[in-house]
Nucleic acid binder design. Sequence first.
DNA 1: AATTTTGTTTGTGCAAGATCAAAGAACGGG
DNA 2: CCCGTTCTTTGATCTTGCACAAACAAAATT
Lengths: 229, 229
Amino acid sequence: MPKLDPSLLSPLPPFSRLPRDQISQILDHATAKRFDAGVAIFDEGDAADRFFLLLDGYVRVVRLTPAGEQVIALHIPSGQLFGIAKALQRTTYPATAMTAVESVVLCWPSRLWDGFVTNYDGFATETYKTVGDRLGEMHNRIAEMATLHVEQRIANALLRLINQTGRKTEHGIEIDFPITRQDISEMTGTTLHTVSRLLSAWQKDGIVESRRKHIVVKDPHRLVILTDS
Amino acid sequence: MPKLDPSLLSPLPPFSRLPRDQISQILDHATAKRFDAGVAIFDEGDAADRFFLLLDGYVRVVRLTPAGEQVIALHIPSGQLFGIAKALQRTTYPATAMTAVESVVLCWPSRLWDGFVTNYDGFATETYKTVGDRLGEMHNRIAEMATLHVEQRIANALLRLINQTGRKTEHGIEIDFPITRQDISEMTGTTLHTVSRLLSAWQKDGIVESRRKHIVVKDPHRLVILTDS
DNA sequence: AATTTTGTTTGTGCAAGATCAAAGAACGGG
DNA sequence: CCCGTTCTTTGATCTTGCACAAACAAAATT
């Protein structure tokens, strides 16, 4: 195992106030792992014996319904912790984490969690903040699904994606990881057919441009307008 | 202000392992308040300067959409903490809390939160557990809204309600606080018209029985069946 | 280069449920 | 007891978006 460099963690909020030697300690307990795109890092129901930090890539938190349909609950951008079931006193993961692209994660055994919380200043604070943010996001999504129409939900989903992962190009803002219409349908609770139709229509109107697994938003403002009408 | 009795808190998980004198201390900082049915205890966006324990009654966590529609996100049964924005590092409440019936709450200033967490054993653990449970519940609701039909969602909502607040009667299990079809529609993301039609049909089939603001589930098992079909 | 797999587009018919409209029933306060 | 308010029911109509189906296109595999 190559020695990991403290500079990996020092820019990240939960560790940002820690001295170099403490970060080195933390890294000594971590193992780095690489995952191919589209594989499960852990599955719903597994014993939650590890927690993770996404160093690079992109991870989706996914849930399978009894009928076997997937629902995408959350997107984890790199730099965030995930799988922190221990923080909420869970013994088992409540959902599956899948890589959207090739990804690199650090992982620690869950039994170290309590030590992290007590020993490292700001760690608990920052992680509970992200829990709070996620809870708020889910709040939003429930309200959205309850009141908005498919078109508005898809517009919202695209806006959220370009805010999180948008990369500016000459033609507009591009979602910088591969995403299929199926994925978008799983985020918005509709079918891939409907998503496809809608994106086609928007492309005709010059709002977006898409190739296979690839979406560029040319006119975000028009999407915002679709959001509340 | 009449002296509050420690026996109020001692059966509740966050305080259950604490000695009597510590509970007395905690109560010395609390103020009890009574609220009429249907009023807001705090509003979305208010500064989160207090946290609450529901002693008696029933509270709904509600969110207003930009278009002015209400969405009911959560139900708080008595005995639970709520408005604990501080635990997730929020300075402002992310939703509105409304009483469903006349209710009694204890409230503490948020600045005491950190002291509670560090001084009282098990307090942090138990409260983060309920946060985890709520997050899990919201997870479920998102998946539900994304994949299930109105009929199934309403069946689920009723089942959840009778599990939380069911009171057994000779005719079946009764939801023991007043609930309108409008309420149910706000929990399930549909219209009160659809809820009304569906309840009427179920009443005809002998699954439920309802009067104004009042629902008795006569045959929970048939509801479970509706859930996955 | 041929073949399979995976992702996308598009058309058509249909059904679930939203919307509009109106009236009836239960309750609460004067 | 009456009246206004709130809650519920029911019918008629209309829209949305789902199901099914078939074809196409791009990538991956051989």
